[in-house]
Computed example of a mutant assay.
Amino acid sequence: MKILFSDEKMFDLDGMYNTQNDVIWAINRAQADDKGGIKQKQKFPQKVMVWFDVCSKGVTPLIIFDEETLNHERYIKKVLPVAKKYGNKVFGNDWTFQQDNSKPHIHRLTQQWYKGKDNFPNFIDKDHWPPNSPDLNPLGYCIWNEFVHQMNWNKVK
């Protein structure tokens, strides 16, 4: 109950889809669309990366990377302080930070930051995180999908 789950997701103006995970079994494109399939409208749509954390107490503020991708330097500078502040606010000094195995998260300097004495009280390090566990990745297996379905993609600019 005291875990702060962290994730980021790339969105574009066509909505969110992941060609590896978003699979719809259909005979043709029209049937796939009838079953909720998404097709790309633009050849090179504008993209934006969104990050936030969730826990049993709520969610952190969104951080939007609209002109840049997330590397370890931006992750340490812009994301981790927000996660630390929120985790400490809602749980005090008894909580665990959980991230996935994306490159900014497992970078040597990021792992060192996690271990800093004034940073997270506990964290699940890169060698102990099961990458395909729905229980340890609620954002990837549930919340991003709900987030996407609440968006009015025709109004996104």
Rank of each mutant, 00 (worst) to 15 (best):
F5I: 02
D125A: 00
G36K: 14
K126P: 00
D100Q: 05
K78A: 07
Q20I: 07
L4A: 00
D118Y: 14
G116V: 00
K43F: 13
E68F: 02
D34I: 12
P81R: 12
A32Y: 08
A32F: 05
G58T: 01
K126D: 04
P104K: 00
D66C: 10
P45F: 10
G92H: 03
F52T: 11
E67P: 08
K43E: 13
K89F: 05
W25D: 11
N119F: 07
Y17V: 08
V48S: 09
I38C: 14
E67T: 08
K103G: 10
L70H: 05
Q99P: 03
E8S: 03
T110G: 04
N88Q: 03
I106Y: 03
Q42Y: 15
N28T: 06
E68D: 12
I38G: 11
E68T: 12
L62R: 12
K77A: 14
K43Q: 12
D7F: 06
P121S: 02
A26H: 05
Y114Q: 01
L13W: 00
K47R: 13
N21R: 12
P104D: 00
F120R: 05
E67C: 11
G58H: 10
S102E: 12
G36N: 05
D12A: 12
K78F: 09
S6F: 05
D33S: 14
I63A: 05
Q42V: 14
K9R: 01
H72F: 07
K126W: 02
R74F: 09
I38Q: 10
G36L: 11
Q20W: 05
H105N: 10
G116Y: 06
M16P: 07
E8G: 04
L80W: 00
Y75P: 08
G116D: 15
L70K: 03
K89C: 10
Q42L: 10
K43H: 13
N71E: 07
N21F: 14
L4W: 02
G87A: 12
A26L: 07
